[in-house]
Design a protein around this nucleic acid. Structure first.
Lengths: 217, 217
DNA sequence: CACCGTGTAAGAGAAATTCTTACATCCTTC
DNA sequence: GAAGGATGTAAGAATTTCTCTTACACGGTG
């Protein structure tokens, strides 16, 4: 079994240490370079020709987004996985366009990371399940639960979606009706139809649903 | 030289690993407990009577801010250092008022963390130099709304808090009663008393409230 | 044009919530 | 140690909200 050579770029010393420990514990992986700044990364990484680069988006001297194409230029065959703290669809899209092979939230669990590394090493693309909702309408046709839920959500009419959101926030039909200048009965209909389409029957299920697809703050 | 006993609470597996490695490498420190959720923390930490608890502010099941007084209550002599991702002066002030002994940004360097641990172990207060600017000139500043809301929240009994959370998640009294093996009427009483204490009367207000104080994920 | 999705809404029965009252415990506080 | 208060538990009655069915108008689309 070949060893996967990995380079780490993160200004966060503790996370760097954690990553290193985790990766070093794998039999088929080895950390061949680490850097805490973009400058350092450009200096030390190319000589090590890693198979995979874990790249933090926020670095002190340069954005990981800027560093990405520079690394890609020097190491066209290295697969780059972006690490980020926040669920930012902007970064996700841009990163993928710039040639990243993976996208991972830092709060990801160990297994996710290892799985991501092995996936991109094999030429695949790995994206955190949580983030996939931002990719909807994008070509990749992987059908996961999140995506299906979002598709289901989009079968609701605008009014229905609106009422569902308000309901999830705890508003009663009466409150929603007053806010929208509608009859309570009308709102009740939207509620009923929305529940019907979503295949649910209680407010708690609705809250869980909208949490899952992330249409609430 | 006595060994400093340290407990770690952070939902971030990688950071947890990094912290553990770093601390374990010190001759005078030992990790005696670690937890990834508030529940787990309350379960495993008290028995280990750590000298110092490193507590992440954002946890999946409860805010570190809420967990702090609970831990303080059980372990009055443990010094708690708050860890956070963001430079948030709100948290800093609140945390210090709630009895934290230290405040550290996660991007801190290793030395900072070790120095902070030794400082609070010796009875001192450690605050990240970067954060000190927020403390200038407002030692006992005005009680902010967040804080008042949290204080209000803490006037609720455990049962009441529990029911409030479930209600905010959209569960009905009946559902909560079934889940807790209580009479629906009992749950209704908790609901009523909780609403009374919080000065609210509708579910939507409750949702807004729990969102504000951050007791929901 | 007929059909379907959508926006709107009323009515009746079912369910949930509001508020009051009740009582036993446990814990302080005087 | 008795009184008082907060808490856990729960029932009853009045009120509100929700569920589900029915209804109709309107704009696309096959």
């Amino acid at each position: 079994m070949p060893i996967i050579k990995i380079a780490l770029v993160d200004d966060h010393a503790l996370l760097l240490a954690g990553l290193k420990m985790l990766i070093s514990a794998q039999e088929d992986m080895r950390v061949v370079a680490e850097a805490q700044t973009a400058q350092e990364a450009l200096k030390v990484i190319p000589a090590t020709t890693p198979d995979c680069i874990l790249l933090d988006i926020s670095l002190p001297d340069m954005s990981g987004m800027e560093l990405l194409p520079l690394l890609k230029e020097r190491l066209p065959s290295s697969h780059i996985i972006l690490l980020t703290m926040h669920e930012d669809q902007q970064y996700l899209k841009k990163g993928m366009e710039l040639g990243a092979s993976g996208f991972l939230l830092k709060r990801a669990m160990d297994q996710d990371l290892l799985y991501a590394i092995r996936t991109v090493y094999g030429g695949g693309i790995y994206i955190q399940p949580d983030m996939l909702k931002y990719m909807v309408g994008n070509k990749s046709a992987s059908v996961n639960p999140q995506e299906k839920a979002l598709a289901l959500w989009n079968t609701l009419s605008p009014r229905e979606q609106d009422v569902m959101i308000q309901l999830a926030k705890g508003f009663s039909s009466r409150e929603i009706a007053d806010a929208c200048n509608l009859s309570e009965k009308t709102v009740a209909t939207y509620r009923y139809r929305g529940f019907l389409k979503l295949g649910i029957s209680r407010r708690s299920e609705l809250v869980a649903f909208v949490m899952k697809i992330g249409v609430l703050s």
